[in-house]
Amino acid sequence: MIPSIVFIMALIFRQENLTFWNIIGQAKIWGLLLSAAGALAVVLWKGPVVLTSMLVNIKGTSDSVLGSVMIIVGLLASSFWNILVGHVLQFYPAELSLTAMMNLFGTIQTAIISAFVISWSSWKLKWEGGLVLVTILLGGVVVTGLSYYVMMWAIKKKGVVFEAAFNPVLVVFLFLLQTFLLGNSIHLGSIVGGVFVILGLYLFLWAKANDMEKERTVADDSAYSPLSSTMKVEGKSSTILPTRKRVQQ
């Protein structure tokens, strides 16, 4: 749902343009809707089993009420983060130092909350053959550090909606990892949802590519307009005339 929420927020804060009745505007809307529908289909609709995995299926306990509240809070927080970062990068275009500051303050906040919420016995690391260390390094270096830097770089280059449009692809990758690593069976809903996500992402990227081409064409036309050419010619003539006068003298 993050791309749809970010798209609405970007329209409100004027970080994205939309011509509703244009084919490009319709492609943006339907692309985001298809991606959101596909991601929801993977999570909420299982359907009949298409292929049963031979691996051991790992299941955990769940709390639907608390989980739903945390998911909604996470969606809103991630969407606001995209909008705020897109605005901050206009005035502070240093993605690497911005990523470092975000991770530093995130670490401080997490440490303070963990000191009150998590019991002291939970701070003892159970290495489990090195798997815990690999998870910590992967989460700190790749998932947090590198991914935030890449996301901010993408927001700076292409905009907040472009970066957020790739979020439903995470659902497809999680479906593949759960199938081949955790032993979950393949359901029809996962396949249909994955197809919807890819089609929606393709529609949206096609619309953004056309938007960028139009903006580039408008910029080129304004740069080589007759008015700007006349101003350039007049500027050259004004610098050449004094030289001619000096030569005649």
Rank of each mutant, 00 (worst) to 15 (best):
W206M: 05
V50A: 06
I5L: 12
F80R: 00
L205F: 03
S222L: 14
V150P: 00
V85P: 03
Y149P: 03
I155L: 00
I24Y: 10
L96A: 11
A41V: 00
E128C: 00
L227A: 12
T99C: 09
L55K: 10
L66T: 13
Q248M: 12
P168A: 03
A37D: 15
V161E: 04
G31Q: 00
K59N: 15
A39C: 08
E16Q: 10
T243K: 14
P3A: 00
Q90L: 05
L170K: 15
F204G: 06
I191Q: 05
I5D: 06
V143A: 12
L203V: 12
V56W: 10
E234Q: 15
K232H: 09
E128I: 04
G235N: 12
V192Q: 06
N167G: 06
A94Y: 14
S53M: 01
A36Y: 07
I2G: 01
Y92G: 05
E213H: 13
I198G: 05
L55R: 09
M1F: 08
L75D: 05
V160E: 12
G86L: 01
W81N: 10
F91N: 10
V195A: 13
M9D: 09
I108M: 13
V49H: 02
S97W: 03
G130R: 00
V169R: 01
K158M: 11
V195F: 14
R244E: 04
G145A: 07
A41F: 07
E213P: 01
L137Q: 00
L18Y: 04
W123G: 01
V141T: 02
P93K: 02
S62W: 14
L205G: 01
W21C: 06
V42P: 07
M70Q: 06
T179H: 14
D211C: 03
I240L: 07
T179L: 11
M151S: 07
I155D: 04
L146C: 03
L188C: 01
M212P: 07
V43M: 12
Y148R: 11
T135A: 06
A41D: 04
W206A: 07
T61Y: 13
L146N: 07
I72K: 09
L146K: 01
Q178E: 10
F7M: 11
S147D: 09
A100E: 05
L146D: 09
L241M: 12
L182F: 10
K236Q: 11
S114F: 06
S238L: 07
W206T: 08
Y224S: 15
V150F: 15
S222T: 15
E234N: 04
G74R: 03
S122K: 10
A37P: 02
F196D: 05
S78D: 01
V143P: 00
A209L: 08
S64Q: 14
R14C: 08
L75V: 07
S237C: 05
I12D: 11
V132R: 04
W206D: 04
I8R: 06
Y149N: 14
S119C: 09
